[in-house]
Design a protein around this nucleic acid. Structure first.
Length: 275
DNA sequence: AGCCTATGCGAAC
DNA sequence: TTCGCCTAGGCTG
């Protein structure tokens, strides 16, 4: 379930479990052969940027992890159990251990390489030092759809398919609206909302985007949790009734990913240019 | 047993 | 645009 909030949360869990400790690092599955390079050294801490996770070890050495679509990094209390399945990377500390499975990236890198990865990312709504104007500079000049731009990690880092669908719904914005037709205030509202929503995601470990006035309880409907673990307006609800207006939620592929939107709440943008 | 799916992304065509 | 990678769980037969 990796969008930016998952990685940010993970960095916090890994830091509190292992930071400052000498850790055993291994690859039970065998594919991360560089594990031996940091085995038995001090794990300084873990940080995230967008969907990237960095484990910092002493001597300025880092392990770069990207979970991709299906990766998981689970932290467990207590003594390590026998590895189950394909464990790419295992960390063992004094009171906890962690197993990484299914990641698309797990590599040993230098601080220079880490800086290069960070430099290629747009601002991350979860980082207090993020500069949203860097994203606005790209969006306000682009003819590409806002739904495409939000997923572009060089424009804005950490937003995935769920937050994309939900933030656009919350702002009544059609996903195919060209970036350059947004007003600055509209972008600012999107950004501020992402900051708040994703921070909530870090706290709870799930994606909940439904405003209090639109919850099933408030709307007089039976309680419900979507099958991805949170409560949302449109994500993966194609063909179902919009929680606000009852229209059927629509879906369409854009750049290989599923878009979801409500055709009534998010009407197609009409250019004010002469027709 | 085999097929399908998924909150990602980069390479290949 | 499509494909391939990576894993686990759920469904189908």
């Amino acid at each position: 379930m990796p969008e930016g909030h998952t990685l940010h949360r993970l960095a916090g869990q890994l830091s509190s479990a292992f930071a400052g400790q000498v850790v055993r690092v291994s690859s039970p599955q065998g594919r991360f052969t560089d594990a031996v390079q940091v085995d038995g050294t001090v794990l300084v801490g873990a940080t995230s940027a967008g969907k990237h996770l960095f484990l910092e070890f002493e001597h300025d050495v880092f392990v770069h992890v990207h979970l991709g679509l299906i990766g998981k990094f689970d932290v467990h209390e207590g003594a390590p159990a026998a590895p189950v399945g394909q464990v790419r990377l295992r960390l063992v500390g004094e009171r906890a251990y962690a197993d990484l499975r299914g990641a698309t990236q797990c590599e040993l890198i230098s601080s220079e390489r880490r800086d290069a990865i960070l430099g290629a990312l747009g601002p991350d709504p979860l980082r207090p030092d993020a500069d949203p104007m860097r994203a606005w500079a790209r969006i306000s000049r682009s003819h590409r759809p806002i739904g495409d731009l939000l997923m572009d990690q060089t424009v804005l880092a950490g937003v995935g398919n769920v937050y994309r669908a939900e933030i656009l719904f919350r702002h009544r914005m059609h996903p195919l609206r060209p970036g350059r037709t947004l007003r600055a205030g509209q972008f600012r509202a999107l950004w501020d909302d992402l900051v708040a929503l994703m921070a909530t995601g870090v706290r709870t470990g799930r994606i909940d985007t439904v405003r209090p006035e639109h919850t099933p309880e408030a709307m007089g409907r039976p309680p419900r949790v979507d099958d991805h673990g949170g409560e949302v307006y449109v994500y993966r609800r194609a063909g179902q009734a919009c929680h606000v207006c009852g229209s059927r939620v629509r879906t369409e592929m854009l750049a290989g990913r599923n878009l979801f939107w409500c055709p009534r709440c998010q009407p197609r943008f009409r250019s004010r240019a002469v027709q």
